[in-house]
Structures are given as C-alpha cells and as structure tokens.
C-alpha cells in the first residue's frame, strides 16, 4: 500500500514542479522539466516495485508528465515546438546514458567503496530497460503531438484532446515498453499483466494532468 501512496506523492510533486517551473521560467521551464523528468524516469525504470501483487517498473509518473508538459507546449506554441523538444530529449537521453554508463565503468575509489560499488551495479547490466524507456518515449512523443494537434483542430477543448490522446498514447507506451524491455525474458501473460497495470497508472496520471494543462494555458 505504501507504494501506491508514494506514487500519488510522486505525481503531486511532478505536477506542482511542472507548474512552478512554467510560472517562473515560462516555456524554458517546461523544457527543463522534461529533461529532469526524462533523466529521472530513466533511472527510476531500473527499480521494480510490487503493486497489487504485480511487479512493475518505476518511472511511469515522470514519463507520463512529460506528455502533459508537451501538451502544454503544443497548447501554447503549436506543434512545431515538439520537434525541438524531441531533439532536446534525444540529446539528453544519449548524453546522460553515455556519461553515466561510462562513469560506472570507471575504477572506484576505496573511499566510500560500498556506495561506489552500489552505484556501478545500478547501471551496468540495465541497458535494455534504459533503451526500452528511451525508445518508447521518443517514438510516442511525436505521435502524441500529432494526435493532440489533430484533436485540438477537430474540437478545441483541452480535456477532449488530452484525455483521448492519452487513452491511445499511454496504451501504446505501455505496450511498446513491455515488448522492448521484457520480450524473451517474461511469459506473455506476465507481460500482458505488466502492460495493463502500467497503462492503468499512466492513464490515471495523464487524466489528472489535464488540470495542469488548464492551469498552464491560463498562465501568461
């Protein structure tokens, strides 16, 4: 049960920080938020937690809030800005993974050896999960921008665009992540359970995030 409470706290922290950054630093704050959320999500994905008797990877909440941030960007600046956002996300993912992984390979000092070894063990051997999280986000962020813009052009209502695009995109994200991360490692039924649980959590987070898009669209 503590994990569910922590997920709720994590969602609140992410949504409030996104709004704070947007309020004080405008659109640059949203770009900065997506970078933090992406790098932290990549690290969190490596941890597995039990939720309602099923094991899932962490990092779903920061990942979902990136979509909310991108929807605020589309709402304010239009679809073209998403290309810039994608470029920034690709670069931050490549740079952060490259440097953190290379640092894990470096010989540790004897001072604080226990922590140094723990640090190395986090990243070495976790490449597949890292890769799965990256590919999933980068592919779906582009699709999300197209879908959100389309829905916005059809019916210019924030909740319609966000909820309907989330229903489709979060499903895609869950399926893609599960396939990329666990094919040949887990049984198909286990993969399906994981995908369904991820989908449920990310969809709830995305729907709650609609409030952020409303508030964000009112911030000048």
């Amino acid at each position: 049960m503590i994990n569910i409470y922590l997920l709720v706290i994590e969602l609140i922290v992410c949504l409030i920080s996104m709004l704070l950054l947007y309020k004080y630093c405008q659109i640059n704050g949203l770009y900065a938020y997506t970078i933090v959320a992406f790098i932290i999500s990549n690290i969190m994905t490596l941890k597995i937690i039990p939720i309602i008797d099923f094991d899932i990877n962490l990092g779903i909440i920061p990942l979902t809030t990136i979509f909310i941030a991108s929807n605020i960007i589309i709402q304010k600046q239009g679809n073209e800005e998403i290309k810039k956002l994608s470029l920034i996300l690709v670069a931050s993912s490549c740079i952060s993974f490259g440097i953190i992984y290379l640092t894990s390979l470096l010989k540790s000092s004897n001072i604080n050896l226990f922590i140094n070894r723990s640090f190395d063990n986090i990243f070495i051997g976790s490449e597949r999960l890292y890769f799965a999280n990256n590919v999933t986000l980068l592919y779906s962020i582009l699709l999300n921008s197209k879908l959100y813009s389309y829905l916005k052009s059809v019916k210019n209502q924030i909740w319609v665009s966000n909820i309907f695009s989330s229903i489709i995109i979060q499903f895609l994200v869950s399926i893609l992540f599960t396939i990329a991360a666990y094919t040949f490692l887990k049984e198909p039924i286990e993969m399906l359970q994981l995908a369904v649980l991820r989908y449920m959590i990310s969809l709830i987070a995305a729907i709650i995030g609609t409030i952020n898009i409303y508030i964000g669209s009112k911030i000048k």
Partner: peptide, 15 residues
Amino acid sequence: YTQSINDTVAINMSN
C-alpha cells in the same frame, strides 16, 4: 518505495 523480491537493482539504489 518497497522493492520487489525479484529486483536486484533497487537495493543498490537505496544504498
């Protein structure tokens, strides 16, 4: 977060 019993990475993160 309470880690899963199948997870080997989480203990290192907490450390």
